[in-house]
Design a protein around this nucleic acid. Sequence first.
DNA 1: ATGAAAGCGCTAACAG
DNA 2: CTGTTAGCGCTTTCAT
Lengths: 337, 337
Amino acid sequence: MNSGLVTIKDLARELKISASTVSRALKNHPDISEETKRAVHELAEKLNYQPNAVALSLKQRRSNTIGVIIPEIVHYFFSSVISGIEDVAYDAGFNVIICQSNERYEREVANVKTLMASRVDGILISISKETTDYKHLYNLRNNNIPTVFYDRIVPGLQADHVIIDDFDASYRVTKHLIDSGRKHIAHFAGPLNLLISQHRKNGYLKALNEAGIPEDRHLIFEADTFEKARLFAMRLINEKRSFDGIFAVNDLTAIGAMQTLQKRGIKIPEDVAIVGFSDGRFSGITDPRLTSVDQHGYEMGTIATEMLLKRILADDKEYPFETKVLNANLIIRGSSL
Amino acid sequence: MNSGLVTIKDLARELKISASTVSRALKNHPDISEETKRAVHELAEKLNYQPNAVALSLKQRRSNTIGVIIPEIVHYFFSSVISGIEDVAYDAGFNVIICQSNERYEREVANVKTLMASRVDGILISISKETTDYKHLYNLRNNNIPTVFYDRIVPGLQADHVIIDDFDASYRVTKHLIDSGRKHIAHFAGPLNLLISQHRKNGYLKALNEAGIPEDRHLIFEADTFEKARLFAMRLINEKRSFDGIFAVNDLTAIGAMQTLQKRGIKIPEDVAIVGFSDGRFSGITDPRLTSVDQHGYEMGTIATEMLLKRILADDKEYPFETKVLNANLIIRGSSL
DNA sequence: ATGAAAGCGCTAACAG
DNA sequence: CTGTTAGCGCTTTCAT
């Protein structure tokens, strides 16, 4: 904190009035004479006075800062969440302190501690992949620190949540493929120890089931990377499986598959329709453009922040926890038309 | 700021000792008896005491927080810079407040103001595309707020900088194209009020010049978006310009051009070689894969933060401004072989 | 070995 | 209309 900055005292001394008068003049308190106000504002302007937010925080017992704990910033989804958070917070006059857990439990615990020490008014958190012990999170509850969980939530913890309906989105993806006449739809799934991968696979299975299409285990792979997708796409071809659709757990995987098929002369979407999931950056740059699911990271950020601010501003007026489930939009593009 | 948290006073009252004793015991001051220390630490543990960083900041006139102003978080390059910043700051016990300018001048000015009000100990900033007035930045200087500019710096402003050798990288890109036999190389440039765009263009021109290839203004465009790239690529074709290489100011632009050419039956890299710049995520998923320049965002973040911390911790001991220039790696892939 | 007091910058009764 | 005072939570002389 730079000590050189002008304080209210400096203004007071210069104008030979008291600090409280300056304080009041600065916020146009009706008691203060126009003349004094003018003089104060003028000098403040001239000396480039910036109110000390730290002193204010201490005084008001309110930092106007929210803390964000995020697994890893370098993912399009998470960085768009942050964008949403930032924008809403900014409009409400709140600062944002960002902490990355880097998907590490230890780090996440340290992050919580840091944010508590900084006396943030509330916390937005998406838990790390490693987190299975929730003591630090219960701690937040015990200390009455408003907390909203987004995307990756804690099973069973009573709190505000914002999540995406992965199951439903995957169901709709698959239904879309079926409705457009596809009958043999492969699924490139994510690691099945993650809840979201399970949800996505289950949504896929439900749609198949509803359409009376039997599950074919030769068409389901654990393939959540670009390279694996190429590999399994190749295998599908080499093993001469008949398939006319692929639903991949993320866009990168979908693109890996698409390229491999195209290279082997298979036409997208004529021969095989392909749908990805999320990511949102790649889908526009493929040819044909990739049908995908928009996870609305930005929107998730704005909503989570609104929920948090609401709770912060409600002060101690208690009200029931809320869970918002966002619909993920299926965005149909050339790869599945 | 949650008021419910335990304070030193609470501990003092409970133990019937003074606040100052508690304070000293907490930091193991040698004057305090072992017994008292033990009691204090025990109670602190039990009540989950967290020192109030806000009060500390006010007292020490040092917030242990650094502010980051970033154009847009949702870019791979910038989010990796943040990752680097975060990691170094975390290790040094500093918090990070992140502000996005969203590439808007007004917002950037507001960000600077916010960070000054928050009394951050220093600022890391990459200026917005719109910024041409530098008053707010000179203001930082005048107020002795340590500031390090990363990536997008202010021409002529004396300060610490971390930049990439855009000129050299672009020179090498272009030379690589020339060396592989290309003679008519187009350049899709960024907005020329940004220094980096100028540098990239100049590197390109230097390589041409060295090879005795005359500059052709019909082959140079201001095109830094996907859409513009498609447009200008189309124009190149329609106007029947002869060209056999494109150096684009970023990967997205390069990909836009690549797709447009491919759609018109032009073979990459046989007919036209294409090279992008940075971004780092897209280059792997095109077909052929895109030759590009690795900008080392994470490393830039760590170095910038180290420079900033050094300046913060040096307190008022003045020392000359430093500029670190990072080498950007040219990564040659299929699009220019 | 411990406590009392002052002060970081600001605001808000309370007093004139 | 303006000034005085106290206090937010903490550290740090200066006493004792």
